[in-house]
Design a protein around this nucleic acid. Structure first.
Lengths: 173, 173
DNA sequence: CGACCTATCTATAAGCG
DNA sequence: TCGCTTATAGATAGGTC
């Protein structure tokens, strides 16, 4: 899907790997969002970049989907393997989140522990740029209250055609 | 990406919605797999079809990624919301799984509770068709032991360019 | 770096058997 | 209900600023 065909094997160049990760991560989240909208399906995506930074997408939320996934499994009985136990609720619950409508949060976010009041304000300022576009007032409110989001990808705003509740969390690479 | 442009809104026709879900689900898993390979990133995808059937993809496994995601969150301290608690280990642990190399499992699988010995054998037979292609012996072994897989998408086999450990679980729609 | 810019490569919406 | 096929819309590799 680019100027030239490439085979699906690990990208050796560290820099290029990072670029590829960012581009494809965005694409994957976009696809997940479209699928959740078009088919009214619940989807959760969690991933770690080569730099081990966490990213996630969820509709209506990673928690809801993970929880439901678990429930269903209780009905089935396949290879009941008991591993380390952690609360699903914590997966997203304790993670920085942002419920948004018609948009996608991307990049530009430092870890919660690295954020200070001022940085948050800058983030809010950056986000306001996009408010004028086609984002609902509901999103604006949520965005203003959000603690970790930094930038709303304009391209994603333009791509969403209808209101959707989705959750996207990211940490600066 | 088809004969004609369509807007990203809920597909009303139930049948078409199902078709769209299947196609895009396959595409999403393929993208997730490519990303995990190219960037050596850990990724977990869990979703429910409009018919509420569970599907998941994980590299190296949904469990590993979910667990790691949780760990990292412990370091952060953002909106610690306590919700229903379930063990992350159960998410994939109790779900039908299949660790495969260089391939993607698709469709054609009934719930574990609906599977009987004979069906499993048929599945194994179908899978053997693809073994000759370019799948590693490791995959063959895993596939033979697998209890729920039914069909390995040939197209996916052809697309993967290098060994990868990934987990894909599906239930027949 | 991060944001854009397009030539290309893919994913897929419709069709067809 | 299913797969395949094919014309297009969409994603993105490589480059530029």
């Amino acid at each position: 899907m680019g100027r030239r065909k490439i085979d699906i094997s690990e990208v050796k160049d560290a820099n290029n790997k990072q670029v590829t990760f960012s581009k494809r991560r965005t694409g994957l989240f976009k696809k997940a969002n479209e699928l959740s909208i078009m088919c009214d399906a619940e989807i959760a995506v969690v991933m770690f970049s080569p730099g081990d930074k966490p990213y996630s997408f969820g509709h209506p939320s990673v928690h809801v989907v993970a929880d439901k996934f678990l429930q269903q499994n209780h009905a089935s009985n396949v290879e009941p393997e008991s591993s380390a136990s952690h609360e699903v609720g914590d997966i997203l619950g304790q993670h920085q989140q942002l419920s948004i409508v018609k948009c996608h949060i991307s990049e530009e976010q430092k870890k919660a522990t690295e954020l200070d009041k001022r940085e948050k304000e800058q983030e809010a300022a950056q986000l306001s740029q996009y408010k004028e576009l086609q984002v609902s007032p509901a999103l604006q409110r949520m965005v203003e209250d959000y603690v970790d989001a930094v930038e709303v990808s304009e391209s994603m705003l333009l791509l969403a055609e209808e209101p959707v509740d989705l959750l996207v969390t990211m940490t600066k690479e």
